[in-house]
């Protein structure tokens, strides 16, 4: 958790993810264990099971459906807590597998333009810093446009990440037009033959029509230079978020056609269970998960590992 980037021991990222998840899964699995030790899968048990899943942020609809599917398979049968966990993990894995897809960089697009958006405090800038580090390690040249011209010191924050990742950061004056800045950055990235351009945007709540229109404008303006851009539009989402995630994905998707999600702060006790419901509802790829503050703490999203960790099982 110090400034020293990534790599800080602790049994690999999976271990860290799991230890992070363990708190919430303890809660889920703890209650499941309590329910089923000497118990048939009856209506009351199903209700409690549903509750336990709700407490994991999976949401009422998804929790009900998962509990229902378990009921279809095993109603009125004796069932052990481990069986419940394994069956649920399997079901969740099935939901998540189709969306666990890494971010593909099309090398024919030069630069490959990635627009990064999200609500305030979701972790956009940190995610961009980590992504830039990964791209650098892949031998790609990266330019970052600091299009968050609103928040105090957002540019400076990005510049530090730019230095860490060896990426050039293009910035303007505070309060400058974000779309104009993105446009200029794309011109520059093209002229310089950069492989990837990442555009960091200001955090905005999805119900702020004016700010969402501003985001739309960025997309519109960069399309003037390259009508296929942005080639990826990432919505960054904090794992502590609850059911408002639905509204976020819906609105951002509608306004600027989000192409994938990144879930951050999965190293806490919140586990981002809402991602299961999001996968069912929107089917958007989950490209990566953030598991710490270091530059290497961005990992691919792995459906089975995530599902099993969520249910407190070994990956």
């Amino acid at each position: 958790m110090s400034d020293d980037a990534g790599g800080n021991g602790g049994g690999g990222w999976l271990g860290r993810l799991k230890s992070g998840l363990s708190r919430s899964s303890e809660k889920i699995t703890g209650s499941i264990t309590g329910l089923f030790t000497k118990r048939k899968l009856d209506a009351a048990a199903l209700q409690d099971l549903e509750d336990a899943l709700i407490a994991g942020d999976l949401g009422v609809a998804t929790a009900t459906r998962l509990a229902g599917s378990l009921s279809d398979q095993r109603f009125d049968q004796e069932i052990t807590p481990d069986e419940v966990r394994a069956l649920l993990a399997d079901d969740i894995t099935k939901i998540l597998e189709p969306v666990a897809r890494p971010l593909d960089i099309d090398v024919n697009r030069k630069p490959f333009v990635i627009l990064v958006c999200g609500v305030n405090g979701s972790g956009k800038t940190t995610t961009i810093g980590k992504l830039a580090g990964q791209f650098r390690d892949q031998g790609k040249s990266v330019i970052i446009a600091a299009a968050d011209t609103f928040r105090a010191a957002a540019v400076e924050q990005l510049q530090v990440w730019g230095e860490r990742a060896g990426a050039e950061v293009i910035s303007g004056q505070p309060g400058a037009d974000a779309a104009g800045l993105a446009f200029g950055a794309l011109e520059k990235a093209r002229a310089g033959g950069a492989d990837i351009l990442m555009i960091d945007t200001a955090g905005r709540l999805q119900n702020r029509k004016d700010l969402m229109a501003e985001l739309e404008k960025i997309v519109r303006v960069i399309a003037k230079l390259d009508d296929s851009a942005p080639h990826a539009t990432l919505l960054v989402m904090d794992a502590t978020i609850g059911q408002n995630a639905h509204s976020q994905v819906e609105t951002f998707k509608q306004m600027i056609n989000v192409s994938g999600l990144v879930m951050t702060k999965l190293d806490g006790s919140a586990k981002g269970g809402v991602v299961v419901a999001l996968a069912e509802k929107f089917g958007l790829p989950v490209h990566a998960v953030g598991v710490g503050e270091g530059i290497d703490d961005l990992r691919p999203f792995e459906a089975r590992a995530f599902a099993r960790s969520l249910m407190g099982l070994d990956a």
Binding site: S24, V119, T240, G242
Partner: peptide, 8 residues
């Protein structure tokens, strides 16, 4: 944050 989920 007002949008915090069950982990609150």
């Amino acid at each position: 944050d007002a949008m915090t989920g069950q982990d609150s």
